[in-house]
Design a protein around this nucleic acid. Structure first.
Lengths: 254, 254
DNA sequence: TTGTGTGAACGTTTTCACAGCG
DNA sequence: CGCTGTGAAAACGTTCACACAA
């Protein structure tokens, strides 16, 4: 689930592969847990298990950061925590605004994982005047009219969009115009942004649909294995012709 | 955001690449929008733009499904909607349970994208006895004690975990034991599941950390001007004050 | 002519397997 | 020894470019 941005590095993409970057937070979380238990060192095998990846991948990932391990021993937990944090830019404070304070926005505002790692909720913004002033997670909600001022005054460069789909692009445009260069989008829309702005999206319904795909395949396999029953739309079949189906979409219940 | 356990290259993976599957919901959404506007056909170029991908990729993706387009014309919108829906398993009804009805669980329960595509919230489950019976999104919350019965009675195979991290693995184990084979995990934990069970995770804090990494790089690039050519950063100038953080905290290896 | 469908080139990510350091 | 770090191979994914159907 990459981002909406086209990977077009006009300049050298010198550095850590994107796939590795996406795993660093995972390692960091596992390492933090070890750190809290005062574990001094871990092997790639142990850490990989805790992070849910395989150890060769983990070692390769770490090799992009430098040689932070000790052969025959493993990695120093505290040191690695620091190195990864630094690489991810978590040794600095990132003020974040959340736009759209519905159930989801409130859930995000209350999410503990925010504050615990470099991120600080600088403001909550909603279009509903009735929300203005109401505190959510201890932070008073401000009206959308204030958006530009809030961004500027707080030096916000990361924005979270939790509005309905219809409002997302407009909010996005305003965030970008005000200076935000990274956006986390929860609205089920494709956002269009200028070059240099990063967008990542989190889309609940997409995740469910991917699960449904695999679930369906499992069911088909099972049927095929058991009885000779027609394994529904299993693997790729032909039916290339538009003849049989023609149209008639309609979602049919089980 | 792949699965939790090691991927299963077991046998004939005869079928659609994972990367393609992950994009089908995107295409489906764009197509549904076109369908609602009664647009009869689209070209790969148009549809790709609407979905935020490039057209070659889209055509390749569709080629895995079959030859559903017409050369010189494009794709029949209704027909494609149906074919993709079928491929994703959305022509059948998927009962889903959501466990953990806090802010996030409530947001998910209220999320419209659920019902609109094959998914039906069969039950809401929470460990807090005080929640029991309280309706959320029109559905009464049930206590965790009922979990197994709910799964069985409703034939649920997809579960959503929106509990605190500490409870997630336990809930997961119970879901799996009761028959759930696909899990969407919102808790910031690595879930361990038996083979044959699919896990997808949605992790807010990981997404933010990835954004922070790129944001940091942007800031660094600005400072270190390589060659004078192509300064890249478009319109807006950097008002990214808030003080650069070049310190070097304690914690060093022994 | 138009725009799909696809082999082939290219780029990225994962995995393997082992040299070599502590 | 045990475990890291890393070339090289394999797998996977994207993009190119064009033959060819409508």
């Amino acid at each position: 689930m990459a981002t909406g941005r086209t990977h077009r590095p006009a300049t050298r993409s010198r550095g850590i592969p994107e796939a590795t970057v996406a795993r660093l937070p995972l390692y960091l979380r596992a390492l933090t847990a070890l750190s809290e238990r005062s574990v001094p060192t871990v092997s790639s095998e142990e850490l990989a298990a805790a992070a849910g990846v395989n150890s060769a991948k983990l070692r390769k990932d770490f090799s992009y950061l430098g040689s932070y391990g000790t052969r025959g021993v493993g990695y120093d937990v505290e040191y690695l925590v620091y190195q990864i944090s630094r690489e991810l830019g978590l040794t600095q404070d990132w003020p974040v605004v959340i736009v759209g304070i519905g159930n989801l926005g409130a859930a995000l505002a209350n999410y503990g994982g925010f504050a615990s790692r470099g991120f600080r909720v600088a403001a909550l913004i909603d279009a509903d005047p009735a929300m203005a002033g109401k505190p959510v997670a201890g932070i008073p909600v401000q009206h959308t009219d204030e958006l530009e001022k809030i961004i500027t005054d707080n030096g916000v460069s990361i924005g979270v969009i939790a509005t309905p789909a219809g409002a997302a692009q407009q909010v996005c445009d305003r965030l970008v115009a005000a200076g935000v260069t990274s956006i986390l989008n929860f609205a089920p829309t494709v956002l269009t942004v200028p070059d240099g702005v990063d967008v990542r999206k989190v889309d609940l319904s997409i995740e469910l649909q991917i699960l449904a795909f695999h679930e369906q395949r499992k069911a088909g396999e099972e049927a095929a294995a058991h009885e000779g029953a027609v394994p529904a739309p299993a693997g790729r079949d032909d039916s290339t012709d538009q003849g049989p189906d023609g149209d008639v979409p309609a979602v049919m219940p089980a």
